Simulated scan of single mutants.
Amino acid sequence: MNYETYNAEDFLFDESFRQWIEGTSPQAITFWEQWLVQHPDRTDVVKQAQELVRALNDHYRDDAPTDRFTSELDCLMQRAAERRDAESETPILPIGQRYSWWRWGVAASIIITVGLSIWLYRHITPRAGHDSYAHLTKKAPLPLQEKVNTSTHVVNILLSDGTLVTLQPKSRLSYPKRFDTSDRTVYLNGEAFFDVVRNPAKPFLIYANQTVTKVLGTSFIVRAFEEEKDVIVTVRTGRVSVYKQQDFEKAQQSGLRRIQGIILTPNQQMTYNLEDSHLTKALVEKPTALMPEIPSREQVFEDAPVAKVFSTIERTYGVKLLYNEDDLSACLVNLTFSNESLLERLDVVCQTVGASYEVLDGQIVITSKGCK
């Protein structure tokens, strides 16, 4: 074979090359290592081909890579050859003959530029990077065990530190049998609720689709399916920090103590959009009380300063209300709450004192001209 004229896609069809990348053939490893030494000018093309092969293997991590790989290539070859043969009104040859190199030159431009490139972009590229679930679990510093929820109901997983993970259907979690390092790191692809046991000496880290969520002990939900464009972290109790994985790892490597991220408190959520790499903090759609029984208890305020009402709301829901105390110092209210939601309570208070509110970055800003 004249490998010196190969482009990145050509290497995909070479079984010896794939065996070298996968490490399944000592002979292939020896050959390609020597070949690269003799042809240093081909290094960039070989690296591109390596990424394509690894992307395919990552994509079919739980299947038989060789069989699925061959099947996909066969389909692409079949469709490309059929289109070409239809145009030239020549019979469709058997698939084995389509792989012959004298016809490959004709089919390559159709398959590579149209079929394979689009297919790789749509189905493999999101999983091929160093932040993919498959890559992270392979490179983890500790041996991992994996739980995959293939059922239609949630599955509870008790980790060695006592942390309880509720794994949603079509989700998977990889974690060490014991947390023997300075932190407690797990890897998620899908959605799960974490009830983390507090341990200030060992922060709990969740790697999920280009994000890292760091906690000491709290309960929250992470939704990070690799096929979805958003990662969502929702805090139920406590406090968590969410970072872009790239920023988090750079800070660790350089020894920086401060990392740019987002801090979330109860009833707040973070959305990370993979398309624009932007972190956004917001209030959850339906804030819930930190203790569910609290809203059901009747709360009566008679000639009470409005600041006292706001303080009670903050304690009940764990949210921050921002307002000018001086402007509202003369405002007294007579109110009774029982089963109203957070926003319903704010509506009542603001209507009573002639104020308004808006939700900004997961906090509630109250505007008022005061009471006379």
Score class of each variant (00 low, 15 high):
Ala8Arg: 13
Glu9Ala: 14
Leu12Gln: 10
Gly23Arg: 14
Ile29Val: 13
Phe31Lys: 02
Val37Leu: 15
Arg42Asn: 13
Gln50Tyr: 06
Glu51Tyr: 11
Asp63Arg: 12
Leu76Lys: 03
Asp85Glu: 05
Ile95Glu: 08
Trp102Tyr: 12
Trp104Ala: 07
Gly105Lys: 14
Ala107Ile: 14
Ala107His: 15
Ile111Leu: 15
Val114Cys: 10
Gly129Asp: 09
His130Leu: 13
His135Asn: 00
Ala140Ile: 08
Pro143Phe: 07
Lys147Met: 12
Val154Lys: 15
Val155Asp: 10
Val165Asn: 02
Lys170Asn: 12
Lys177Met: 08
Arg184Glu: 01
Leu188Arg: 12
Ala192Leu: 04
Pro203Asp: 01
Phe220Arg: 01
Ile221Trp: 10
Val222Phe: 09
Glu226Pro: 00
Lys229Phe: 00
Ile232Asn: 06
Asp247Phe: 11
Gly261Ile: 00
Gln268Thr: 04
Gln269His: 08
Gln269Gly: 01
Asn273Ile: 00
Leu279His: 01
Ala282Trp: 04
Lys286Tyr: 14
Lys286Met: 11
Thr288Tyr: 01
Glu298Asp: 04
Gln299Thr: 01
Phe310Ser: 10
Ile313Ser: 02
Leu321Phe: 07
Asn324Gly: 09
Leu332Asn: 12
Leu335Ala: 08
Phe337Ala: 10
Ser338Pro: 00
Glu340Ile: 05
Val348Gln: 08
Gln363Val: 10
Cys371Ser: 03
